[in-house]
Amino acid sequence: MNLSTQSNNSGGLFAFLIKYNTIFIFIALVILSACISDVFFTSINLSNLLKQVSGIGIISIGMLLVILTGGIDLSVGSLLALLAVLFAIFVNTLVLPAAILLTILIGFVIGSISGYLVTAQKVAPFIATLAIMTIARGLGFMYSKGAPVVFETDGGAFMTNFGNGSFLGIPNIAYLFLLVAIIAQVMLSYNVFGRLLIAIGSNEQAARLSGVKVDRYKFLVYAISGALVGLAAIVGASRTNLGSPNMGMGLELDAIAAVVIGGASLNGGKGSAINTLMGVLILGLIGNILNLLNVPSYPQQVIKGVIIILAVLLQRFESK
């Protein structure tokens, strides 16, 4: 008797729990958090939690698209810093709409460079985006001269208000994250674009021989990832009233972790935006509850790592 036969026999509930494990982990964590700390269910805490995860959430959705095609984007953390710095500079020098559009556009263009390297030059995604990561971090320090660039204009004040404001008790930027996740999920479930990403990640050669424009879509996901980093940079800078070249250190790993906790396969071809959203919330929740319990930051990292391993092992059950 092996394990898989036993789990098949033990009926519906277990299978059900396994299938929707991301959601259940999330719910379990919420309940656990509420039991452990009475501060958890206060609106200030929840609002803070959502604000903290929104930026990385937007980035994780871009990361998901890249991972679906079987690639990876290591540049997102550094790119966030560069684009936040640039956004702060633009806010202080240009009209606000131009600053916003330009930031997202530059993100798109830099993402396109990764995409170009991966598709036209056949550079491994890990290497291509590692190089862009270094370049972006360097540029961030160069443009900011090593110091944070603070918003100084009315436009900047408007963005700071937006970044810290709420609507119906929910932070504005959380709506932005939710919107991005929903659009991504709709594209993945109902649009040709999503179908093709999944096909490419599932079997690139078969997709090519089915007449799919593989390179075009692979190029696009890196560009979109870059553009979403631009959006996240605007969100991040607006929350803090500045753009700092130190932002987003190691953020790429958190984004990858969120996507993986959300059940996506790093081999590509499997993943959903809603589950990635759950993954982002789970990571955020863990950090939040550990903070509430006054756990120091080093043990926090250990606990986070263990949770990632557990989440991935749980998904192994699912695929059996």
């Binding site: 999944i198 096909a199 599932s202 079997n203 050669q205 078969a206 997709a207 021989l209 071809g269 499997k270």
Partner: peptide, 9 residues
């Protein structure tokens, strides 16, 4: 398996 179908889809 390598070029014809998408096994996991």
């Amino acid at each position: 398996k390598e070029e014809g179908v998408f096994l996991n889809l």
